[in-house]
Design a protein around this nucleic acid. Structure first.
Lengths: 149, 149
DNA sequence: GCCTTCTCGATGCAACTGCATATATGGAGA
DNA sequence: TCTCCATATATGCAGTTGCATCGAGAAGGC
């Protein structure tokens, strides 16, 4: 589709829009959470992954894979969340190198509290601006962009 | 389009895909730049804004507006870039509170060097994965999402 | 068993960010 | 002019990130 060196004008336009809009929307949600005295979005992602995982627990490396976060970043994020009592670390009897990270009751409550802000934000920013057909279209197009190949 | 509280399933799907793919692509480009020993993407944005501005210069607050960055962040980013000789600060005779930030020759060279990596990355990640029709479509849809309203 | 290599996770240090606030000038109005 | 508020930019401090590396256990070959 190109000489693989100089991007097309339409690719540059799509790229810039993607970078700008995604950051803008991300910050809008972060702002809502902060205004409600809640922790950042990535805490929600962790809690969500854990809550929907088998037995409410995952190994840290699984979180690294699912969240596209650096390993050291996950390590410290979990430490902070544990300090707040939202997750627990439990030994993994089958693998002495690591441990399980399990969501606590307090963590489940925090997930609900965050969703009470996050959900309406998505409703406002996405449902409020685009009908379902557009949403499906953008989902499909972004999926193509995310495909490595 | 909704009760403005609970987002639709398609909105959640579009949202997650947007957050995930934009971050993934951003990191891919940052990785390319880092591998080439070049500074981060936002340095390119500053250099681009300055290079295309009247007389190659802008006031810091104009960069804040165009780049959706926090004021204190721009202040320090410019300091770092000045330390590397990529921009200069010049007094603004008409407004003693601030100053002009001007791109240097070295800054223009850095912009070219970064584009030599950035451009091909966009070509690979966008042109390589989607034809022009798709690119235009995603641009249009994202523009709608970015519209406050 | 023993060695080598790989995987999992944590951490010291430097760089960067966010928040609150400081400094200085501009501008409007009494 | 003097006062008061707004705008432009910088900065101290605490919290977070990135990078490199470390230590410990797992896994495979011999």
């Amino acid at each position: 589709m190109s000489d693989h060196t100089e991007p097309s004008a339409s690719a540059i336009a799509a790229w810039s829009r993607l970078m700008r809009v995604s950051r803008q929307l991300h910050e809008a949600v972060e702002g809502d959470l902060k205004a409600a005295g809640l922790p950042p979005l990535e805490w929600y992602d962790v809690l969500h992954e854990l809550a929907t995982a088998e037995e409410g627990r995952l190994r840290p490396y699984q979180l690294v894979d699912r969240m596209l976060l650096a390993q050291y970043n996950v390590s410290r994020l979990l430490q902070r969340m544990q300090d707040k009592g939202l997750v627990d670390r439990l030994p993994d009897d089958a693998d002495g190198r690591g441990h399980w990270v399990a969501i606590t009751q307090s963590g489940r409550a925090m997930r609900r509290a965050m969703w009470a802000v996050y959900g309406p934000a998505i409703a406002r920013l996405v449902d409020g601006r685009m009908d379902e057909a557009g949403q499906r279209q953008i989902h499909a197009l972004l999926t193509r962009l995310g495909q490595r190949g």
